[in-house]
Structures are given as structure tokens and as C-alpha cells.
Simulated scan of single mutants.
Amino acid sequence: MDSKCAIYPLRILWFGHRDVMHPRAGGAERTMYEVSRRLVRMGHEVTLATVNPGSLRGFEEISGIRVIRVRGNVVAHLRAPRIIRRVGPDLVVDDLAHVVPWLSPYFTDKPVVAFFRHLHARSLRGQVNPLEAEVLKLVERQYPRMYGSSVFVTETETGVRDLVSLGVREDAIMRILPGVDHERWRPAEKAGRPTLVYFGGMKDYKRPWLALKLLRRLGDSRLVVVGSGSSSATVMRICEGLGLCGRVTFTGRVSDEDLPRIVGSAWVNLHFSQVEGFGLSILEAAACGTPTVALDAPGVSEVINEFGLGVTAGNLEDMAGKVQEVLENNGA
């Protein structure tokens, strides 16, 4: 593709709750960054407006992308109208990776794209208290009304079906598949002994502790757990309780340079999330030559089975058998 835009350059404003520098950044933030930097390369001007966790600069430029960070989730939403006026965008993207919407259609007459990742109603349990979960589910059901004249973008057929179930017209939905940077995510030399990797996120709905329960069913394999988050303490406590700490390495958050090497050296990538928009880590692992074995879940099973990126299992016992089969096929 030509490095410059074939149409007139656009001024694009993208609202999201985190950016790629956030300490809890995941697949949604990596997608936002990769798409944005390619838009910049095409000649467009891109501004990301996100929430500042308190440890990042309020203004920063990353790969040509202007990043505005506002302290606090509530304050960030309240400042959205001001940010729209300040940036003066030709196009706004409201990223719905986190359930609370940005409501940009109420503050601009320019086109707004609603980026729908997955149905949050499936993943709220355990993340927030029951009352808050019901309120957030109600908010999510209002998306069709809030974004009535907008185009919804989603990454999977599961996302399309979920939007339709919320009441969004199918002709207002566009499915766009994500991608990965093959200069960064590429095959690496495999570890000398059977090694599993988990880098799918340390949140309760991702169920990272199941990696430990799976490891207990597998002979001499070792496990590398990448990342940190709200579930980290639970996972470490379970590891100690199962007596597996000698076989598990916790890396915490790693650099962009180290992550592909760690994933590429593993024999199998593990995935336990209850729901995903696409499951970008599955695609990233595949680019590194590492197949994924995952528990069946909306979004996850579709991606793995549609693109042949690994295998899925109905329960943990079944998953252990499939992981063992992959390990044996690789010479374990």
C-alpha cells in the first residue's frame, strides 16, 4: 500500500480507556495502537484520548500518534465533549472495549464509529459487584439507541450476532479482522523442554489460574505466566498451594521486544477466557509458530477453528489431553 493516503487526510479522534503504554494494556490496546500507527503512515492525523492511571504523562506522541491522557475514568468521560471541540475531528472512533460508552454522537455531527469488542454481559460476573453488573448490562443494551446513526465495527461473527441480539441493525455492522505485525511477531527457537505459555491477561474473566490446574495434569512440562493484573495474587497463591512454583515462571509485565521471544519459544499457548472479541494473543502466538489450546468460549472457538490456529476443548480434562497431544507431536 502507498505510504500516503489515496483520499484526503483525515483528522481522527479515537477514544479508549487505555493506550498501549498503560500497565494493564492488552489485546484491545495493541489493536488500537497498530491500526492508529498505520493510519498515521497513510497520512492521517490520529489522536488517542485515554484514561491516565497516574503513572503516565498527560500528553505524549507515540509512533506519530498524539496521546491525550486524563486522570480518572469519570473525569475522562466528562471531558470527552471538550476533547472533541479541541481536536476538531473529521471522524471519531468510540472504543467499547470497556463497557461504559463515550457517547460521541451526542457531541459531534461528524461520523462516529463504534468499535464493539465483545458482549460484556458475559464477563462482568466476578469483576464488579452484582448491582453494578446489572447496571452495566443495562447500559450495554442501550448501545443501539446511543449509536443509532453510527457504524458498528467488530472482529468476529460472534460479535456480529451479539450486536444483532442487542438490537443493532445488521446492515449497520461491519466485520473487520485484526492482524499482527510480522516484523515483531515471528517464529523463534523453541525451548529445549516442553514449555507452555499463558499471556492472555490477568483478570478474573480470563481465568489464568486454570493454567496451573492444567499444568498439574501434565508430566514434566513447565509454564511461563506473562503479565500482571487484578488476578496476579490469586494465581501466585494457587501456585504455592499446588506446589508448582518450581515449574512456573512469573515474568510480570515484559517489554515489547521480549514478549514475542517468550511466546515463540513456547510449545503451546494456553487460553481460558470466558469470552473474547477476537483473542489477539491467539493470533500473535500463531505468528510466532506457537499453536493455542483453549477452552471453548464465544469468540475464541470461532477464531481458532475458522483459521486453524490450534484446538479447543470442552473442559480442563479434555484440554490436558489435547495439550499433551500437541507436545508429543513436537517431540516431547
Rank of each mutant, 00 (worst) to 15 (best):
H17C: 05
H17R: 10
H22C: 09
G26T: 13
G27A: 07
M32C: 07
E34R: 04
R37D: 05
R38G: 00
M42V: 04
A49D: 06
A49E: 03
T50H: 03
E60L: 11
I62L: 12
S63D: 15
I65W: 02
V75C: 10
R82K: 12
I83M: 11
R85K: 13
V87G: 13
L96A: 07
A97D: 04
L103G: 03
P111Q: 09
F116G: 00
R117T: 01
H120G: 08
A121H: 03
L124Q: 02
Q127A: 08
P130F: 15
L131N: 04
E134I: 15
E134H: 13
V135T: 15
L138P: 02
V139D: 06
E140Y: 12
Q142T: 12
M146H: 07
V151P: 00
V153A: 01
V160A: 01
V164S: 07
V164Q: 06
I173E: 01
V180L: 11
V180M: 11
D181M: 14
R186Q: 12
A188C: 15
A188R: 14
E189W: 09
A191Y: 13
G192T: 15
T195L: 13
T195V: 13
L196H: 06
L196I: 08
V197T: 05
F199L: 13
K203R: 14
R207E: 06
P208L: 11
W209E: 11
R216Y: 09
S221K: 03
R237A: 15
G243I: 04
G246T: 04
L259S: 08
W267Y: 11
F272E: 00
S273M: 00
I282Q: 00
L295H: 01
F307Q: 14
G308L: 10
A313G: 12
N315V: 04
L316V: 10
D318F: 04
G321D: 04
V323Y: 01
N329M: 08
N330M: 15
